[in-house]
Amino acid sequence: MSDKLSARSRARIENSIFLAAVILLGLVTENTYYLQIMTFIGINTLLALGLNMLMGYAGQVSLGHAAFYGIGAYATAILSGTYALSPWLALICAVGGAVLVAFIVGLPTLRLSGYYLGMGTLGFGMIVNILFREWSSVTGGASGFVGIPVLEAGPMVFMSGKSYFFLVWAVVLAAILICRRILRSRMGRALRAIHDGENAALAVGVNTHYLKLKVFMFAAALGAVAGFLYAHFVLFISPESFGFMVSVKMVTMVVIGGMASIWGALLGAGLLTLLPEVLHGFAEYEMIVFGLVLMLVMIFMPQGLTRGFLDIYHASRKKRQ
């Protein structure tokens, strides 16, 4: 019993540290640029968290996840911008729409073993992106959508760097708690069982197809929430923000940070948001360095940085002893 208790209390400690760090960073940081970067990290963490459940546990990769991000962003832009609906109602529609679409895309492809979901989402993501670009009467086309309202809740206006920072990170914290609850529940045990051995999970009575579909829909929902937050933060969206390379970047966040690890998603999202900012100085070499870093990490730390660093740490401790 004590093992289990300590795991639970460790999770509690981790969450508290995380919460304290977020509050501290939010209170101390005054520089709007830094606040903005950290807000983007939060949005990307949401994307990575959902994808991490899908890739890390259900063993499926989605190569079109930016589509759900885009659906979230465009749904709220169109509903609250063009049709003046309350953004909060728009959020519900956006998430509902993304989940429904995920159901339709996932239903046939998740039945097959291998990377059929990856291929299906790849095609789906491209189509959605082309739709954003070509359906200009509704989406604003390639030049983008202007006129997204600022988020308000009663007396609160989420506009300044700080209020939006706290909004986004509150959502991230909620998402982390939800992921943890799922992983600890019957559903999460079944997911971890799929991770350990899919055939065995199937044989002991887990409906793997349905479970994967549920996780895919969950990941889509988190993607749509992230898109919603993104749209009301930057107040202008265009199709490039939801293209194929964005999907690839999300997958990369998960893999670099470490699959099947909640903090890995946070680390991956942080690094992949910061790296381009750092590399701006290199201008011409940005893509080369980015590609190279990606390859090197994956070649030498295939488990991701969280595990990679832990391994190095353990190895060095062993050496010292």
């Binding site: 019957r186 045990r189 069982a193 009575g205 887990v206």
Partner: peptide, 19 residues
């Protein structure tokens, strides 16, 4: 936990239950 997974078909807590 292994045995609990074995009980999967006899229990019913899903996504909403977990959350």
């Amino acid at each position: 936990e292994n045995v609990l997974v074995g009980m999967h078909v006899r229990t019913r807590c899903g996504f909403w239950g977990a959350v």
